[in-house]
Design a protein around this nucleic acid. Structure first.
Length: 581
DNA sequence: GCCGTTTTCGGCCCGACTGTTTTCAGTCG
């Protein structure tokens, strides 16, 4: 069951879509969309709010507060039902076809009675659309292709995959003459868990050769758009890559613009308008005289908007502009703050590298401490035993002096369907750190799952709940649990929640990180490395924690060893709880 | 529908590209 915020946000988005199709006032449509984002991004659970509390959410006014309340109380909204009667659900699904917006979705419905993507395809094959006003052969052919591609490809790309591809293409573009700067922007720079397409930005006085090189790369399957300053290609693996080329002097405003998010940009432009200015990818201008005010760097543009530079990972219009105006931007955790990895494996269980190799790799990354947390006996396939665990502990103690890094002997317990764990309390007390996680029975009911995880959180020896929701970005949905209750229990008991850095997981995600912090819980950013290269995923975990506005004070593995050890001893209350933002 | 250190009414982000048009509408980001 989704959180009330998500359900309400979906309701508002459906409202916006249907209003747009029905030909509603565009600004009204935008107001619903804006409110949907605001509700989804609010750290407060709206189920606990009254009308006044809802009205206090930015972009939610009295009208929408009442609609949200109606929705929360009755599960539906009368006015939305009327719209649904007016616009069949299938017509809304037409909006998923790239290139088909609300106006044309309504047009094909009103003129030809089309109410599904299937019917749209039939009509396209019978060439019934090209006779409508504003349509022609080209637009019909493009739509056929768009429907086809939306059905076959269209899946979002994992962050790790996207970053690899972006860096590969950028390496080629950087090698071109007269390319001054080149980088990735968009959701990739904001380090979203998945990205829909890859946005690249190049600064050069001469766009044409860059466009030519980009559109003729070996990995190009098809050129989607080819313009003077903007082109889009589809790679052979079905990934869309957009490139913009700008003059070097507008690098900052272009980077700001192409990084987004769209909602963040809109906020900045609104501020510019109120100050008698105009902001675009070409710069910040005086609205009356068109005089250029700032463009060269992001910092300069933000500064002239009277804002400090805002880190890309929090540019989501979820409160960062307000915080910036108040001088209250969070001091986000950085990769360099991380002093150790607290969840890793060796070949004693399912890792592929030896203890010595993993420890040497950790040392090489400059870590001060490093936890080895191989699986425990209840994950039967890993064949762990009490004897093996004790032998590993001995090995770690012997290795520690020569390794020149503090080694923590830990384990990753299996949270059983009833919430019980491997080993008894006496034995668990012998570990330096205990992480626990769900590896099976993912589909329990919300209540059973919540009780199961709470039991682990409240266990006196459990220090970290690893990959809490169990999601696998490409393959498995997150488990259903009352996260806010779990976060409150974690805060109370001094149990940390993991931000798993694997690009397959990124678990907790940014939204849950924010809610966990809101509840006063601490976090651990770990890689769950099963091999040496996985240790480098830490940057994805850090970015995900940033997306949840986490600072190093929130992250236990940025702390000095002594403070970390006191936390792991699990004495309540949690240390420094009152010193955090 | 939302919002206000010009405003409780009248604004509401900006530009590129495409395809259909001869000056623009629709879509996208």
């Amino acid at each position: 069951m989704p959180r009330s915020n998500d359900a309400a946000a979906q309701m508002l988005q459906e409202f916006a879509d249907l209003l747009a199709i029905a030909g509603g006032e565009p600004f009204k449509v935008r107001a619903y969309e804006k409110a949907a984002r605001a509700v989804a991004g609010s750290p407060t659970d709206i189920a606990d709010l009254d009308e006044k509390g809802l009205d206090a959410i930015p972009s939610v006014g009295a009208h929408l507060a009442r609609k949200i309340l109606e929705f929360l109380r009755t599960g539906s909204v009368e006015e939305l039902e009327e719209l649904r009667a007016q616009v069949p659900a299938g017509v809304r699904s037409l909006l998923d076809v790239p290139g088909l917006g609300p106006v044309r979705a309504h047009q094909v419905y009103a003129e030809l009675g089309i109410t599904s993507v299937t019917e749209l395809l039939d009509a396209l094959h019978e060439h019934r659309l090209q006779h409508l006003p504003g349509w022609g052969e080209r637009s019909e052919a493009n739509l056929v292709q768009a429907v086809h591609e939306a059905h076959t490809g269209g899946a979002r790309i994992q962050l790790g995959v996207a970053l690899g591809l972006a860096e590969e293409i950028l390496a080629g573009l950087c090698a071109l003459p007269r390319v001054r700067q080149a980088t990735y922007a968009g959701s990739l720079r904001r380090m979203c868990a998945t990205v829909g397409d890859i946005d690249l930005l190049v600064a050069s006085e001469e766009a044409e050769p860059v466009m030519e090189a980009f559109c003729t790369m070996a990995l190009v399957a098809r050129v989607l758009v080819r313009g003077d300053t903007k082109s889009s290609i589809l790679t052979t693996k079905g990934v869309q890559v957009d490139l913009r080329v700008v003059e070097p002097h507008s690098w900052g405003s272009a980077l700001l613009y192409f990084t987004g998010s769209k909602a963040h940009n809109i906020r900045l432009r609104e501020m510019a308008v109120r100050a008698g200015q105009k902001l675009s990818e070409y710069g910040l201008f005086d609205a009356d005289t068109d005089r250029l005010i700032a463009a060269e760097t992001e910092e300069a543009v933000y500064a002239r908007l009277r804002l400090p530079w805002i880190p890309p990972t929090i540019r989501e219009d979820s409160g960062e502009v307000e915080a910036a105006l108040l001088g209250e931007l969070p001091d986000l955790v950085e990769l360099r703050d991380v002093r150790g990895d607290l969840h890793t494996h060796t070949d004693l269980t399912d890792g592929i590298a030896t203890l010595e190799v993993m420890v040497a790799a950790a040392k090489a990354r400059g870590y001060r401490y490093y936890a080895v947390t191989d699986h425990a006996p209840l994950l039967y396939m890993q064949r762990m035993t009490t004897e093996k665990a004790l032998e590993q502990r001995l090995q770690i103690r012997q290795l520690e002096d020569a390794a020149g890094i503090t080694l923590l002997h830990g384990t990753e317990l299996n949270i059983q369907p009833d919430g019980s764990l491997d080993w008894d309390e006496d034995f668990l007390a012998g570990f330096d750190i205990v992480v626990a996680s769900v590896h099976s029975a993912f589909r329990q009911s919300r209540d059973v799952m919540t009780a199961r995880i709470l039991r682990a959180v409240e266990h006196p020896c459990v220090n970290v709940i690893a990959h809490p929701t169990g999601r696998s970005i490409a393959r498995r949905a997150p488990i259903d649990a009352d996260w806010d209750e779990i976060f409150r229990a974690a805060a109370r008991t001094g149990t940390a929640l993991e931000v798993n850095s694997s690009p397959d997981r990124l678990d907790l995600d940014g939204d849950l990180v924010r809610r966990a912090r809101h509840a006063g819980a601490f976090l651990a950013i770990s890689t769950d490395a099963h091999a040496v290269p996985h240790l480098d995923n830490m940057r994805f975990g850090v970015a995900t924690a940033q997306r949840g506005w986490a600072g190093s004070a929130d992250i236990i593995n940025t702390w000095p060893l002594g403070k970390l050890r006191r936390f792991l001893a699990k004495h309540s209350p949690a240390p420094d709880a009152d010193q955090r933002r």
